[in-house]
Design a protein around this nucleic acid. Structure first.
Lengths: 138, 138
DNA sequence: GCCCAAGTTTACGTTAACGTAAACGGTAAT
DNA sequence: ATTACCGTTTACGTTAACGTAAACTTGGGC
């Protein structure tokens, strides 16, 4: 049995596919699918996949993106912003533009969520009022 | 030609499908699809669909939901919270629970977006630093 | 009367993101 | 040695949310 008691912050920690699947509450199929799509590229020990902390972070970012409705392709776009394959000034400026556009979309989404939350507040207030009224006339 | 100059806030304003399609930048197919799925139920004048301001609001809510990754079914759930078909106290309490759950999900999404935005800030800072450095060594 | 733009119905096609099943390999415990 | 789990590959199935095309109707303009 491999050592499951090593500190989780160890730099050379690795994870099996089922460990990550359990942690993130997805199926192993999902994780393999992400690999198939090129979103992650785990090591292999023999035939089995071995995930590094970096892989784990990528999965975390993917799932975060998914929760706010991003497609996998969009997740890749955002994740790729992090890796420093941007050599010359032209690429840097282009990346800054991409960042600006993406930020605008995120801000729109946050406005949408705030609007939704405001709606929920109203609904709840109406509910509680109706409940109070029902209590009064009892 | 129908009057297209009536004030848009008139209570009995109606819209054609193409007007709404243009306003919300979707296709007419999309709007008909929402009807097919039971999300809206426009009036008819003869064979043609006529949309009321209430229909328009529902479409707006649907699209808002979609922007934050909600499915159409989830949009219906949320929209249905607004209409007062909640008669007795039991239903009211149940609705309050539903509201609480939904709010929790929205709050999670907002955290996700804030995390994404923080990531973009970092990326941008690194970009600008790299650009500045490139300028220095020129 | 004829045309055109906008509307309609019906139906099949498409894409993303997995689910599900089959068939197989490695290894650890009984 | 057999059972019990992981893990693997390959492949077909599924659902949501429309796109696209065909064939038809309808009211207004020339």
């Amino acid at each position: 049995m491999p050592d499951r008691n090593r500190p989780s912050h160890s730099p050379d920690t690795t994870y099996t596919i089922s460990e990550l699947a359990k942690e993130f509450e997805v199926t192993t199929r999902t994780i393999r699918f992400y690999e198939e799509k090129g979103l992650i590229a785990p090591l292999r020990q023999g035939q089995k996949r071995l995930y590094t902390p970096a892989d784990r972070v990528r999965i975390k970012l993917i799932l975060r993106g998914k929760r706010i409705g991003m497609t996998l392709d969009e997740c890749v776009e955002v994740i790729d912003m992090y890796d420093p394959a941007h050599n010359n000034s032209e690429q840097l400026r282009s990346l800054i533009d991409t960042v600006r556009d993406r930020r605008a979309r995120f801000l729109q989404q946050r406005r949408d969520i705030d609007d939704m939350l405001a709606g929920l507040d109203e609904v709840q207030a109406l509910c509680e009022q109706a409940l109070a009224d029902a209590g009064d006339t009892q």
